[in-house]
Design a protein around this nucleic acid. Structure first.
Length: 464
DNA sequence: ATAGGGTTAG
């Protein structure tokens, strides 16, 4: 009988790459040869650097940070090789996406202990992480210590420009742009994509359109699909459908390939003016031209169909996403739940909401807010209170306006005192009662001779 | 997989 053959590090990395489940991938990494049970203690498996890359990325994507950190400390002890800088960049941005800036900074500080030299790429990753966490002050601080260590590149300036745009400081964005050019760093397509989007998001449509013209003429950078998608979205928002379609023609004329982002914008733009058939035609045109619709595209379709109150077609679209090899995401469901509520179909909306875990979709804060607002809108206060309790328990908060509205409605209703106290207790425990609500509640209590109830509530809350 | 766009709510 031949003993099972030990797996090679090379083969292991290929198995890891194919394993979609991060937990199973981790098991495989930690125990590559489960079938071999030798009496002597096994030597630790000599993982390849590629296997480290793959497992760290998989764990980071799955937000399994404790497990990821454990693999990182194992990597730190490896003396056979020097980890590539890009691994750290990726981990730093995983922390950024998860809003864990301190862990990102900690890893950045530890990089030398991994024998890895930090170039401008790692610095950029930290900058972008701080931006994603909206910590502009720390960003400024970090950038101040930048130039003594590394030379900022186009990516650095693009992140800075993006930060200015996100804060609505367009003048600052232009200053960074000028600074970049003074330092002889050439702006690229991302620079202009960021600026155009920033201008559009700050309602400077004219300036954005002019910049698109200047891109080629002055800066010799060809506008790409990103630039067009931002412009088309803003034009459509401004009610300029013909200018939106004009930009589509311009792309075709200039030989700029339309991508799924541009098609998605066009689908939304058409639904916005009630052109449902045209939206379907664009979806078809997209397929014919070899551009695969993605989940975002389908979500635009679902949203359009919900606006048309065609929930049957919207749900059919949900099935189609799966058939196309994509899968519906939480936004797909939130759109339908919100649409159903708006039409008073709260039972269907609630059923879909309850069904999300079974469908493999994690409910996010907007799912809760949508169903909560929807139930309140349908005057299903009891059901809304149940959702409120669950969402606060999960650490999510309703929008301040919604919470205030519910308290207001319950105060107005004649026989809802019991529910009102329940809602106030839940909101109070999470410190979500605003001044206006207090006013309403107190005046209601005075009318009803329930002052002692309110005092009791205030006492409980003050104790905390 | 160091940086930009297109889908929900407000």
């Amino acid at each position: 009988m031949s003993a099972p053959k030990a797996i090679s590090p090379y083969r292991l990395s290929s198995l890891l790459r194919r394993q979609k489940d991060p937990n199973l991938a981790l098991q495989l990494f930690q125990n590559p040869n489960p079938q071999i049970q030798s009496p002597e203690p096994q030597k630790p498996f000599r993982h390849s650097l590629l296997s480290y890359d793959i497992i760290i990325t998989k764990l980071g994507r799955a937000k399994m940070f404790d497990q990821m950190d454990q693999i990182l400390s194992q990597l730190k002890e490896e003396t056979r090789f020097v980890p590539r800088e890009i691994i750290f960049c990726n981990v730093i941005s995983f922390y950024g996406r998860a809003r864990l800036p301190d862990r990102a900074l900690k890893l950045f500080d530890e990089m030398p202990a991994f024998r890895c030299r930090r170039t401008v790429k790692s610095y950029n990753s930290v900058m972008d992480t701080l931006l994603k966490c909206s910590d502009f002050e720390k960003m400024r601080e970090f950038f101040a210590g930048f130039e003594s260590k590394v030379t900022p590149d186009a990516c650095t300036y693009n992140i800075l420009i993006n930060a200015c745009c996100k804060r609505g400081c367009l003048d600052d964005a232009w200053n960074v742009f000028d600074e970049m050019r003074r330092k002889r760093v050439r702006p690229n397509a991302v620079t202009f994509g960021t600026l155009v989007h920033g201008l559009c998001a700050n309602s400077k449509l004219e300036e954005a359109l002019n910049l698109k013209e200047d891109m080629l003429r002055v800066y010799e950078v060809k506008p790409d699909a990103s630039v067009y998608a931002s412009l088309m979205k803003e034009l459509s928002r401004a009610g300029e459908l013909s200018l939106t379609l004009g930009l589509k023609e311009e792309m075709e004329r200039e030989g700029i390939k339309l991508d799924s982002g541009v098609y998605t914008t066009l689908i939304s733009a058409n639904f916005k003016v009630g052109r449902k058939e045209e939206a379907f035609r664009i979806l078809e045109e997209m397929r014919v031209s070899g551009c695969k619709p993605d989940t975002v595209t389908y979500n635009a379709m679902i949203h359009g169909l919900c606006m048309e109150k065609d929930f049957e077609a919207a749900c059919k679209m949900l099935d189609q996403i799966g058939e196309q090899g994509c899968k519906p995401d939480i936004i797909s469901y939130n759109i339908i739940i919100g649409g159903l509520c708006k039409e008073g179909k709260w039972v269907e909306a609630n059923d879909l909401f309850e069904d999300l875990p079974r469908r493999g979709c994690k409910r996010d804060v907007l799912s809760y807010r949508t169903i909560f607002d929807g139930l309140c809108g349908c005057k299903r206060f009891k059901e809304a209170a149940l959702i409120l309790d669950e969402m606060v328990f999960k650490g999510y908060a309703p929008s301040a306006l919604s919470a205030q509205k519910l308290v207001g409605e319950l105060c107005r209703e004649g026989n809802m005192e019991e529910l009102l106290w329940k809602v106030l207790t839940v909101l109070g425990n999470a410190n979500l009662i605003d001044v206006n609500s207090w006013g309403l509640v107190i005046s209601k209590a005075c009318k009803k001779g329930m002052v002692s109830n309110v005092c009791e509530l205030v006492d409980t809350l003050i104790v905390q």
